[in-house]
Simulated scan of single mutants.
Amino acid sequence: MTQEGAKYPTVFTVDSYHTKPPPLPPRPGRRRNIGPTQVLLFLLVSVALSGMVIEAWLIYRLYHPSASTETALPSASKIIRDETLGPEPTKWSRLVEAPSKPLAHLTDGEDVKAHENNIMGWSEIPEPLLYKMTYKNGCLIFQDSGYYYIYSKVTFNVDSLVRHSIELKTKYYLGKKSITLLKSMQTSLSRPSNSFLAGVFHFYKGDAIFVKVSNMVHIARHESTENVFGAHMI
């Protein structure tokens, strides 16, 4: 029993749940800040993985060579076989390397036929030495314009007056069949004797030069090297 009129303190109960709401969950899609350490770590991992992929590819190519690799790197047996049979033929069969500039060298031969107007013909057996130049009907035809050193030697088997010249055919000189570039007139008391002509001239593409002698009968033809004709760009 309580006594009437007794005084007691007043007690209040506070419910924190109803006075303060709970914290909200993080918003979806919110990005976290990435520090420089994480970026560096990502780069290092990417480089390491790339290195592993490249190394695996190299190991695979080492033990499984492709057809193109086998062609580029022939086996030792193929190299020995090629050395036994000699080098493979190239587009320029006369030299190991093709000349750097146009050239031609013609010689006499049994297949040579006389042309009109005492124009000398040149042998095509074996194949004449020609590079970026053409031979047709006793004429050397230039395919490239430029300065050329030209030469000719003719051997004669008589002791009479002989004439030997190198002539030019070109479309740039109208009214003339040919132009004399070099000329020799001589009389020799010994047999055989030879005449040699040489000089430097400028030629255009399509120009043609040929050798002319006074009489085909007077030409000595014992060896192919007795009569030669050629040109090369300088």
Rank of each mutant, 00 (worst) to 15 (best):
G51N: 12
G51H: 05
G51C: 12
M52Y: 06
M52T: 08
M52L: 09
V53M: 07
I54R: 03
E55P: 00
A56Y: 05
W57N: 13
L58G: 13
I59P: 00
Y60M: 01
R61H: 10
L62I: 02
Y63M: 10
Y63K: 14
H64G: 03
H64Q: 04
H64T: 07
T69F: 01
T69I: 09
T69C: 05
E70K: 09
E70R: 09
T71V: 04
A72P: 00
L73I: 04
P74G: 05
P74L: 02
S77E: 07
I79Y: 03
I80M: 13
R81K: 12
E83Q: 14
T84K: 13
G86M: 06
P87I: 06
E88V: 05
W92S: 07
W92T: 04
S93Q: 11
R94Y: 03
E97F: 01
E97T: 06
P99N: 15
P99E: 05
P99R: 06
S100T: 14
S100G: 12
K101T: 14
P102I: 06
L103V: 05
A104R: 03
A104C: 13
H105Y: 07
H105L: 06
L106P: 01
T107C: 11
T107K: 07
E110C: 02
D111A: 10
K113D: 04
A114E: 15
H115P: 00
H115A: 02
H115I: 00
I119E: 01
I119M: 14
G121M: 02
G121L: 08
G121A: 08
W122V: 03
W122T: 00
E124G: 01
E124W: 00
E124F: 00
P126D: 06
L129R: 01
Y131K: 10
T134R: 11
T134Y: 05
Y135F: 12
Y135N: 10
Y135G: 05
K136W: 07
N137L: 07
